[in-house]
Nucleic acid binder design. Sequence first.
DNA 1: ACACTTACTAGAATCCGTTCTAACTTCGGT
DNA 2: ACCGAAGTTAGAACGGATTCTAGTAAGTGT
Lengths: 201, 201
Amino acid sequence: MEAVQDLPPGSGPGLRTKSQLQRRRRILQAAAALASRGGVEAMQMRTVAERAGVALGTLYRYFPSKMDLVVAVVGEELDMLESSIARRPPAAHTPDGRAVDVLMRATRGLMREPELADALIRALILADVELPFGDRMAGLLLRVAGLPEVRADEEQAILAASLGAVWVQELLEMLRGRRTYEDIQHRIEIAASRLLADFPA
Amino acid sequence: MEAVQDLPPGSGPGLRTKSQLQRRRRILQAAAALASRGGVEAMQMRTVAERAGVALGTLYRYFPSKMDLVVAVVGEELDMLESSIARRPPAAHTPDGRAVDVLMRATRGLMREPELADALIRALILADVELPFGDRMAGLLLRVAGLPEVRADEEQAILAASLGAVWVQELLEMLRGRRTYEDIQHRIEIAASRLLADFPA
DNA sequence: ACACTTACTAGAATCCGTTCTAACTTCGGT
DNA sequence: ACCGAAGTTAGAACGGATTCTAGTAAGTGT
């Protein structure tokens, strides 16, 4: 008896078997591929399902809504950013320099697939996501600024999150065609120099 | 000849006649009323049209998409904020104090109709709006900080816009139920004190 | 008043996210 | 090898934004 009826809300099926992991991977891959072409519009649930070789109902079992799917795709991108940073940590000598470095690296990554980036960022902002982008980015910024979360005080956490917020908005403006990469860099540098001014070197 | 076939993209029909202005007003009013109840979901195009007493096609002639409608509603709210500020300017003695004052006043205004606020903010972020919220808010912040746009240099404009960006993100967090009014005030104060630190008193 | 362009109306039609159904498979336990 | 639960499938069905169509009203120039 004791049936485990309810799936862990965020994650679809239990993903016990190997074929389920593969299905999940195929879905994410199909979704990212479609979005990197035509943006959100091209990433239609029917199309994703078809391209991943699963039934529509199955797609919805793995990702209860389109937003969940988008969030998962973004999560993968963030993983990649984090591991890229672990591989080659930012070299600047000041905390704000390192933060700018990370943000601009992320910006370049997103610019490589503008349609995907557009789809992802917008969907994220819309989403009622529980494990959000913002927090993860803020944590990352704190870390490269030299303050592992434990050592940061509340004020520093707020400042790092604020810098993340500025970056997200600039990204949106870029997606709307109103900023170039250089604009963003310039603006982020200015904001970072103020927000992170009194972080310990 | 010389037919003016194309409507000015943002604004729907030419709005030449009085009855067209009234129709537009009725539509905006219906939209705001519906949204302030049940949020975006309640603000359905059919319902708005019905409640405004126009045909669905006409609604779409005035506002080519739901987003355009939302943007127009937001515009009206911003007008109200600006006139409220003109009536009772912020009293704090420092530029950042005045900026915080304005932002928190706007926050309270939005909190009064949380469903509406939610609908509006999200739609705004999604929208490819040409006349954006962000710029208008940044201009307003510069003004209350004591720098009419003409006197502000580029760096100050960027810092004001950054503060606006931080505020928008905090607002989103509030709509997600992850911030209280007091949280926002605290966080905005911290960000403003850094971002506007060297504005002339 | 007349002709004609433009605006409006009612309603059907389309598109896409999401939900539902009924039958078919796969898997773990026995 | 067999049973029942959980996973999968193809496809229909539903809901809301958006588009389309045919016909009616309103406004403008002559």
